[in-house]
């Protein structure tokens, strides 16, 4: 997979197929990006599991925190990692000990570790790096258009008005991601420098 620019169909396929998402580094602080994403994905119908050893015994929007991925005790479809790039590798190594393996490892905006991604991909796990699932879901459903964001999707079909707890259709004609080539290029330059 080219991790500089993902085809929309790749992202769409992931968001359409996964049901349970374990979020490593989920924060109960309501101005943190992980809290935003956790709440949004829960409202869009995903089965969310907060993973953070510092908050065991508490819950996040009604879901109890677990200390580690191995404490979840049931199969999960996707691991969403809210950690800096330098902390990605140990989490990926932990993921690789799970049985069954999850289908997807997702690393948040700003997080990228190509070596860790290669390890996961070598055992058939799909990897997304430096993206936010909330933003991608909002973009592909065109819900994010309300914020003036270029969703890079077009449709002549009437969409349902979104309500809480409802999964939206992500199956709109895609403008392919190519039209923000400039921002993809900038992200690639940055990752090569660091």
């Amino acid at each position: 997979m080219n991790h500089d620019a993902y085809p929309d169909n790749y992202i769409r396929g992931i968001l359409n197929s996964v049901k349970s998402i374990a979020m490593v580094g989920a924060s109960p602080v309501n101005v943190r990006p992980s809290y935003f994403a956790f709440k949004y994905l829960a409202q869009r119908g995903y089965d969310m599991i907060p993973v953070n050893p510092g908050h065991v015994g508490k819950d996040l929007l009604g879901k109890p925190f677990v200390a580690s991925l191995s404490d979840i005790g049931r199969p999960i479809d996707m691991v969403d990692i809210f950690r800096n790039s330098s902390h990605i590798l140990p989490v990926v190594e932990e993921v690789l000990t799970l049985d069954p393996l999850p289908k997807v490892i997702w690393m948040q905006l700003g997080a990228r570790d190509d070596a860790a991604a290669a390890k996961a991909e070598s055992v058939g796990i799909k990897v997304v790096m430096n993206r936010c699932p909330k933003i991608e879901y909002g973009r592909l459903s065109s819900e994010i258009s309300w914020m003036g964001v270029n969703s890079r999707t077009l449709s002549s079909k009437r969409a349902p008005a979104p309500t809480q707890g409802m999964r939206l259709s992500l199956n709109r004609m895609s403008v392919g991601g190519g039209d923000t080539a400039a921002s993809d290029r900038a992200a690639k330059n940055k990752s090569e420098q660091s």
């Binding site: 169909n9 769409r12 709109r172 004609m173 895609s174 403008v175 392919g176 991601g177 039209d179």
Partner: peptide, 8 residues
């Protein structure tokens, strides 16, 4: 659903 680039 195809990743096709529409024109201007």
């Amino acid at each position: 659903m195809s990743d096709r680039l529409p024109g201007f």
